[in-house]
Design a protein around this nucleic acid. Structure first.
Lengths: 343, 343
DNA sequence: TATCGGATCGGGAACGTTCCCGGAAACAAG
DNA sequence: CTTGTTTCCGGGAACGTTCCCGATCCGATA
């Protein structure tokens, strides 16, 4: 089938040991011989058999990225950044989508695994592989040195600080009751921290928790918030898809966005800028996070210390779905009118 | 490190040949011996080393899905369907994102490759691997038995037929000038075929070609179409993202959707139902296509004929962005009013 | 001239698996 | 008792690579 080192040795009239010396860049070989073997290997497009190298425990330069939700744009960005770093360091990155598959693949010589958003049980399965692993999201709050944080708490606080600067004081929060997802309490914590820092009291009735990340749930949650005796002036949804539901709820109640009710999301999905009005949200630099995660993984494999410095933090994607109610006298006047509108 | 068949043989006091007979389900072994070896293997969680199996040319049950645009929802759906079939047939499916990576990985014992939307040069690289391959999209019009069609021509014709049924006769088409993308001429062909079947003459001025699949290009193309002396009553965009640009163009011109101008897309992206009004578009059953593609690939690997029957065809996602101008007298009356509105 | 050290190369084992072939029983038929 | 057949199991090679050890040659030194 394919050309082997034995074939190269035969063609050049040497032993496979010598051929291996030439191809591996060893020093104990004459320069003329090395050139002859290298030329022969190049002309036959020789590539060492990876499986044979795995068998003798040689370096395979194989890494795996584990993540289940392909189709997620964030995953794709993460992959792009990780792939770039892996390529630059000479590694090959393959992506696998289930942990039992990883289990069957551990004999293929994969040197390390990067995980993107795995649930705790799957992460445990990966740990059993006894392979270096770095994963993105902080799963358990108690210290996990193998994790790289995506900074959701910071991102949520960033957005809420922005809302406070825009004059909002009654900030509704659309949360999700997914026990597995560590992002939920992290975002809530960011929300609470930002309020506390500004001296704004936390009101539990302004936090509504829905079941799923769907447009419908966002709609229902927003209806609840808007029917409060004292409705919020802005709704901060934990994800853009929830925010789209809030858009529909506002439209149904005859509320203009952002004049009557401001809405903000999280994720900066591709459709966030397409909505009308364009949604203000938070973008996580997943590509840079992927690059950083891969740098950590490769450093661990090669027994080097982790790169210094922290990965990039989320940034605000400021658009037109949040109103400034600070120095706008007419909005100030309209504010009491919101209540009767919502009933 | 891991448990090997030699260890199992030592533990049960037999040779590795006998152990292999028990584990491979051979017939020339006593039942008591087989049970003893099987129990030992199970208790030690034995799994044969894949690399060693590759080396001796044994079956690896390894398949690869090649596709570059992760993050594409359609790719994820395709993967889901393919993965399900592969699992059911006992295969392991890994996904790789570049053809030179595949080149390095060919020694890992991958038995077949399924390709999703590769460009022609990359597909050629995969062909050089001399591995069974089935790919989704029809790249070159002249027969390609290794391809499974995604039915874009049928899907486009389906949508245009629907528009004709709704009474539309001046159907604008928003195309894209991407020479690599075979979808573009296929959709145009579907558009033209449907017109011809209905006896509606094809008017080149109603087909506008833009440069990229972006909202901005969709906007610009729609502006061109709407500023024609005789503007279309409906715009069929080659993708949903172009349709969102058409939405903006219509809004800017003060045209109501669908009362003044109907708009339809292609792809049924996640945001299609979130737009206002919800976008009528065409959904391709990528999950079923992935399953069918994988069935073809496995059949080819196992030297069986391809599964009979054709894969599922695209379906219409009927929403509210297309008006019925047939039996609506007031719309009939309004029809001449469109022209002065657009100027 | 005998010895030594460095440079250069070949031989062979090892990794874990599969496969082929031969051997040793056990048993039936002549 | 011999011969042939079946059942069951072990020995050893092969896959392609890497690594260790030893062999050869050559020039230099004592």
């Amino acid at each position: 089938m394919s050309i082997t080192i034995t074939k190269i040795a035969e063609l050049t009239g040497v032993s496979k040991s010598t051929a291996h010396r030439a191809l591996s860049g060893a020093s104990d070989i004459s320069e003329t011989m090395r050139q002859k073997i290298l030329d022969c290997a190049r002309s036959h497009n020789y590539q060492p058999n990876l499986s044979a190298r795995v068998l003798v425990g040689a370096k395979t330069w194989l890494l795996a990225l584990y993540g289940l939700d392909f189709g997620n744009v964030h995953f794709a960005q993460f992959l792009r950044g990780a792939s770039r770093v892996a390529d630059a360091a000479g590694y090959h990155l393959l992506t696998v989508s289930s942990s039992d598959k990883m289990n069957h693949l551990r004999h293929l010589g994969i040197e390390g695994v990067a995980a993107f958003f795995g649930s705790s049980s799957e992460i445990a399965g990966l740990y059993n592989l006894q392979i270096p692993m770095v994963r993105l999201i902080k799963q358990n709050p108690n210290g996990d040195e193998a994790a790289v944080s995506s900074g959701v708490r910071y991102g949520a606080a960033l957005l809420v600080r922005y809302l406070l600067e825009k004059g909002h004081r009654r900030i509704g929060h659309l949360s999700v009751s997914q026990p597995d997802d560590m992002n939920v309490p992290e975002k809530l914590a960011g929300y609470q921290n930002a309020l506390a820092d500004a001296g704004v009291p936390y009101r539990p009735e302004l936090v509504v928790s829905v079941d799923f990340y769907t447009e419908r749930c966002g709609y229902e949650g927003a209806r609840k918030l808007l029917s409060l005796p004292e409705p919020p002036t802005v709704i901060f949804a934990q994800s853009d898809i929830l925010a789209t539901g809030a858009y529909r709820a506002a439209r149904e109640l005859g509320l203009r966005i952002p004049e009557d009710i401001s809405i903000a999301g999280y994720d900066d999905k591709e459709y966030a800028a397409l909505l009308f009005p364009a949604l203000t949200t938070v973008r996580t630099p997943y590509q840079q996070l992927g690059a950083y995660t891969m740098e950590c993984l490769i450093a661990e494999i090669e027994n080097r210390p982790r790169p210094s410095g922290t990965p990039l933090l989320p940034v605000l994607a400021e658009r037109s779905s949040v109103a400034d109610i600070n120095l706008n006298p007419e909005t100030e006047n309209e504010k009491p009118c919101i209540q009767p509108l919502v009933r």
